[in-house]
Amino acid sequence: MSVGLEHFLVLGAVLFAIGIYLALTKRNAVAVLMGIELMFNAVNVTFVAFSRFVESASPLTGHVFVVFIITVAAAEAAVALALAVLVYRNRETINIDEINLLKW
């Protein structure tokens, strides 16, 4: 049995699902962020797999996309951590359940 496109897609889907699960259940905001990063990486796996297996006029596009995603995700993580610090200074918690001043 050789490893084909399907296997990579399933891997991507499983990673994406685990990411969702983490993002929606972890109480610590940083852990939620890790879940989101996992979702991004699931997307990266999918892109690279498609790039490798799908016939395309410009086969490198998928890889290029992945590089962009990694870069942007890093910038996003930086801002996220800064905001987490800000929230911690204000509230002395980054427990996402307790960050619910704004509601209704």
């Binding site: 939620v32 996402i96 359940d97 619910n100 509601k103």
Partner: peptide, 17 residues
């Protein structure tokens, strides 16, 4: 309906999915 808007970010995320 506004009670659904309980301030819980993860609930909002769940709504998306």
């Amino acid at each position: 309906l506004r009670l659904a808007q309980a301030g819980q970010a993860q609930v909002y995320g769940a709504a998306i999915f």
